[in-house]
Nucleic acid binder design. Sequence first.
RNA 1: GCCCCCAUCGUCCAGCGGCCUAGGACGCCUGCCUUUCACGCAGGUAACACGGGUUCGAAUCCCGUUGGGGGUGCCA
Length: 469
Amino acid sequence: MSTRVRFAPAPTGFLHVGSARSALFNWLFAQSTGGEMILRIEDTDAALRKPEFIDAIVKPLQTLGITWDEGPYYQSQRKQFHVDAVEQLVESGHAYYCNLTREDADRLAEEAGLPPGYHGWSRDAGLPDGPDCVVRFRTPDDGEVVIDDLVRGTVRFACKELEDFVIRRSDGSPTFLVANAVDDADMGITHVVRGEDLLNTTPKVMLLWDALDLGDKPDYGHLPLLVNEQRKKLSKRRDDVSLMEFLAKGYLPEAMVNHLALLGWGPPDDVEIRPIGEIIELFKLENVNKGSAFFDIAKLDHINGTYIRELPVERFVELTEPFVYGVDIDVPWASEAFDPARYERVAGEVQQRVATLAEAVDFVDWLFVEDVEYDLESKAWNKSMRKGKQVPEILEMLASRFADVEWSGEALNDAVMAVGNELGARSQVPARIAITGTNAGIPMWDAVAELDRDVVIRRLENALTALRA
RNA sequence: GCCCCCAUCGUCCAGCGGCCUAGGACGCCUGCCUUUCACGCAGGUAACACGGGUUCGAAUCCCGUUGGGGGUGCCA
């Protein structure tokens, strides 16, 4: 039997990295088993029904290269099926009307000295439907629901622990639990792969499934959650979780996908950074582990840097254009000062040094600004300038020699080396800091030769002034 | 509170009863390369939460404890 999975996000305004990971694992499973994946938007809650929210899911998935064979389907458009299902459940005695609000239920529980929750108050009241009525599912009093989870193994839930949950809101709209069962059945879903946060809802859906007589149930596989450094589920409020924002910061989609695939799963041969085709081949849902995984930016940076370095230089230039041209981001130089040709000449060296595309700006800013700024509190300044050997002398000599040295990269480099040798000190770092503002960067003298002589000399003098201040 | 899940280096992954003096990757540290930084290369640091079983033998199986997480909505 061919596999068929679905990625079924609630549209909340943007694609969460956790959701992206779920989508990816569904996709990897479908691809590796030669199956299909469908995209279904779970918008049973009216508040989630906004067209712009759909784009916020579809676009990132496309960017990541996560494809689907059908959809997007919208649960809201299948509402009638869900309404019918609810009606069927009421008629068959599996569900009943209830006119209590959440507050009523809490109060009744407290008065009865019962734990919080709904205790079947209206179960046998035989209430008619009404404007403020919800429909609740009558959970079995005993027995258990057993899930043979593909990643977790057997999980059991005692039915008596399951309260009579709401399947239709008082506004008449069915909840996602019904929609889930009905749609998964109608759409022929064979495997439900999703986050562990939904594990507790699974027995409810299974109960509905049986009550609705929907036939064979899909297999379930609950993925470990993605967590932050505090080991809490990644959340919109506390953490950076917007996939698009990562891409906007200069993480490559391929790197993002590679990193995500490594959270909760690992290739048998320990080769972590590899093409998606190989990941598909090696992926096995049974090998997904159970413990939650920390979304580690440092590791992402490493993977991203590796992918960036593998790019053809022209491609790197192309990809960094939105950043160096200041599209959507601020750039430290005046836009007319940017020289694309000059940028292209150094791009190859920049490419070897960045972890994200956005960082390219930091490596070339000194080529396009008038004067560089010195961070007098920085470690580099303190170590190489303030405490460096004969730094004032180096800067003075360079300023004076640069006044009449041949203005070429080679000659400039020779002059710097000569000064260092004459003084018995390392002259490169002080010169670099004075001219570029920092001790880390690309091989510089050819690029320096492209700057005006007086600009370079002025920077050497500025650094000297800053040093003596 | 109750229900459910989880537990190997700081982090991610390997380990599926003997091959484990616990392996790889990221990070961190050292050295080489280099009169910058990075890459690369060579090293190093660092873990089976604890306690009981089962077994000739346990990181691997079972139970308990502890710790962490998720759920407990007329959100999904």
